[in-house]
Design a protein around this nucleic acid. Structure first.
Ligand SMILES: NC(=O)c1ccc[n+]([C@@H]2O[C@H](COP(=O)([O-])OP(=O)(O)OC[C@H]3O[C@@H](n4cnc5c(N)ncnc54)[C@H](O)[C@@H]3O)[C@@H](O)[C@H]2O)c1
Ligand SMILES: NC(=O)c1ccc[n+]([C@@H]2O[C@H](COP(=O)([O-])OP(=O)(O)OC[C@H]3O[C@@H](n4cnc5c(N)ncnc54)[C@H](O)[C@@H]3O)[C@@H](O)[C@H]2O)c1
Lengths: 218, 218
DNA sequence: GCTATACTGTGAACGTCTTCACACTGTGCT
DNA sequence: AGCACAGTGTGAAGACGTTCACAGTATAGC
């Protein structure tokens, strides 16, 4: 099967979309592959290759900003607003909630769950926090297909299982565990520890290289 | 140059490390590549391939948990404690601070910067919040090489430049912009919007597939 | 001591993603 | 109208990361 959208492609398209949205807001009407490339931090070839996926056509003057944006949105956005559930309204959960609130009309965190009585019943940024015991019913009842897990590591697997059996097929997971889930469920692990470690590791590596220290191979 | 540690390899090693730490705490003394693989969500081949990078040797009974952990730490951890600076003590910044506080003795967020008088002067989780105007002096003075950017998008580029000229060579960036930085600086972009979009996108894709809907190619 | 067994270490095959290079197409200019 | 140019679309090449498959090696059992 050709033209299957890879993981990375989706991530890049998401970036192009953001860049294009800004350009469009600035009333810029046309954009070339190398402009997009520079703004997105990839090569121009990569941009053109990715744009083949969205079946967007350009001219010798570049692409029409609005058209391109439309094509990407048509591919990436759901045809109708998609609800997302959040489980775990702690530090990260709250941050995510505040950030996404009202930002993407087509992708909205409309319900949150927690097991802490202090949070349950409150409404944060327009999103009600329900007891986690209601999860199965609410998620299944509203046909929610995507969810965010932001509970402590030792609760994550159980939550994931509950979500999956309630019908969720895409999970963004902040907990530092590899969730066991059927192949039919997409799990996007957000490994902040790993990210920070990478930054720290390569920071050391680069500063060594800079000082001309002939160290190990890496 | 062979044996150069890729991005992905570092991320996986970070996961192995976490798994091994748990096993070690549980007094487990040996581990096989397929155990690690299952826990880390990768293949056994992948694990063995990665372990070649850390020059860890196993036997026909697997690897010695403590040895392996030591080998990975020797590779990944700095020889002496490494300081990390945080810029932007908002929602995300606070969450990150609370999470990493005291968790990794070898990788510690020891200073934070903000431009909001309400935050400046406070100490969160043992980390003092200084005015961002002190950034250059403090970061350069303490030889800090890694930093986290958690300021709004429109402030991120300026902050990045300040960090880089103060000597930072590795940045974990939460702001939704592609930072322009010299090649000698490693930038790890944490794109939460992209991650959520991926989860939502594939959630739709999977649930369609499940229902046997012969839709588009993707 | 010898064989059967279990796992690692790794060259090679494989597949995927990225980059290259250039044919092609439309535009602007004279 | 015709030519020069600029930028796309894409086949092919290349680089990279992953998986395969099996030789090598140590242990356990008899
Ligand atoms: N904060 C960070 O920067 C950070 C970094 C890396 C990883 N993480 C991971 O993200 C997750 C959340 O982190 P956090 O800092 O927000 O933690 P937190 O403790 O602030 O929040 C966890 C929330 O989950 C709720 N909860 C606990 N058990 C639950 C259950 N069974 N069902 C529903 N809700 C439950 C708690 O009441 C709390 O509100 C953790 O797994 C953590 O390891 C966080
Ligand atoms: N919260 C999320 O879930 C989320 C998701 C995706 C992206 N982000 C990005 O992460 C960044 C931070 O998000 P947030 O939700 O924590 O925002 P926030 O507004 O809560 O925090 C931003 C902090 O940066 C400080 N700040 C502003 N300008 C500054 C400057 N020039 N120097 C130093 N400090 C400055 C502010 O005082 C504030 O404390 C933003 O760029 C945001 O787009 C956040």
């Amino acid at each position: 099967m050709p033209n299957t959208l890879s993981d990375n492609a989706i991530a890049r398209l998401s970036v192009y979309r953001r860049v294009l949205t800004e350009m469009h807001r600035d009333s810029r009407t046309s954009v070339r592959s190398d402009d997009l490339a520079a703004a997105a931090g990839v090569t121009a070839s990569q941009v053109r290759r990715d744009l083949m996926l969205v079946r967007a056509l350009g001219t010798n003057k570049g692409y029409d900003t609005a058209d391109l944006l439309g094509a990407i949105e048509k591919l990436m956005d759901p045809p109708e607003p998609q609800e997302v559930a959040l489980v775990g309204v702690g530090n990260i959960g709250t941050a995510v909630l505040s950030y996404f609130a009202g930002r993407r009309p087509m992708l909205d965190i409309t319900v949150a769950f927690d097991n802490d009585p202090a949070v349950i019943g409150r409404t944060l940024h327009g999103c009600p926090c329900l007891p986690v015991t209601d999860l199965a019913e609410v998620v299944a009842g509203r046909n929610i297909r995507a969810a965010i897990i932001a509970v402590p590591a030792d609760a994550a697997q159980k939550v994931a299982e509950a979500l999956v059996s309630a019908g969720v097929r895409g999970i963004m997971n902040f907990a530092p565990v590899r969730l066991r889930a059927p192949r039919s469920v997409y799990v996007e692990n957000v490994d902040l520890t790993g990210s920070l470690e990478k930054a720290a590791f390569f920071a050391r590596q680069r500063s060594q290289k800079e000082q001309g220290q002939t160290g190990y191979a890496y």
